[in-house]
Design a binder for these strands. Structure first.
Length: 252
DNA sequence: ATGGCTTACGTGGTAAGA
């Protein structure tokens, strides 16, 4: 099973890239973040024409998540149960016994801000919910844009802001790991300074001035089945790219 | 080397992202 995650920064703008990427890579599931469109505007016909089904949780202008699959998902969940939130950041479904959770984690803006407090509360609610999810479905993949670079090697050395690399954010990431999850990307040898996001400005991609903030965490029963995990930088080189690359995990 | 992009909304200039 091949599962990928990709923050597309507007599905409307990136739809041609998504359709091309599906054709070229044939994932079993593609988790998307930052759709930036209402459910009524979701491009379902185009996705279906590409041979995929979709479940989605969108809103106007901001946020929004979807999972595209070739086979139907079971037990689809929208948002974190019991966590009151106007922002559409979670969708989950079960594919062939694997629980796939797709998340667009809050940005946080600046350490100490109201948005940072929301980020931390959201992470706490996610962690509590996933603890239950793992009991119900031990085979689980947590895919998405975490907006956290978990270790120093996941950020360019010249990254000066605290946001995305602060200790409270990294501690929250470790609490997810401590549920029994493994960062699939780090199971395999990777190049130095391997990132998943680069700012649009200042030639950041060309200079490889980026962060690794898009992750695929897999639960313990999946670890022995995991054969590869990698980023695909090709879409970042296209015209009008998303600022994020897809990240892919392969399970056999 | 951190706003110098990009997007949505809406029709000019903000807000937000990371």
């Amino acid at each position: 099973m091949k599962i990928a995650t990709w923050n597309v920064n507007s599905l409307k703008v990136r739809l041609p890239h998504v359709v091309d990427w599906l054709a070229a890579n044939q994932p079993d599931a593609l988790c998307l973040q930052e759709l930036k469109c209402e459910n009524s505007a979701f491009p379902l016909a185009e996705i279906e024409a590409a041979g995929y089904q979709a479940v989605f949780n969108g809103q106007k202008t901001y946020n929004g998540v979807a999972i595209l699959t070739r086979q139907s998902l079971a037990d689809v969940t929208h948002n974190i149960p019991g966590f009151a939130d106007e922002q559409k950041r979670i969708i989950a479904g079960t594919l062939d016994g694997v629980r796939i959770v797709c998340g667009y984690f809050p940005n946080g803006q600046a350490v100490g801000s109201d948005k940072f407090a929301y980020k931390m509360a959201w992470l706490e609610a996610l962690t509590a919910w996933l603890q239950d999810e793992l009991k119900a479905t031990p085979r689980l993949v947590l895919a998405g844009d975490y907006n956290v670079a978990p270790e120093d090697r996941d950020a360019h050395p010249d990254w000066k802001d605290e946001i995305h690399v602060s200790e409270p954010e990294r501690a929250a990431f470790r609490r997810l790991i401590n549920l029994g999850l493994t960062d699939a990307f780090r199971m395999f040898e990777q190049e130095e300074r391997a990132f998943s996001w680069w700012d649009y400005r200042m030639g950041a991609f060309r200079r490889n001035f980026g962060l690794r903030i898009d992750h695929l965490l897999i639960s313990a029963p999946l670890v022995e089945h995991c054969t590869a995990c990698y980023t695909d930088k090709a879409p970042r080189k296209l015209e009008r790219p998303s600022d994020h690359t897809p990240v892919v995990v392969e399970l056999k």
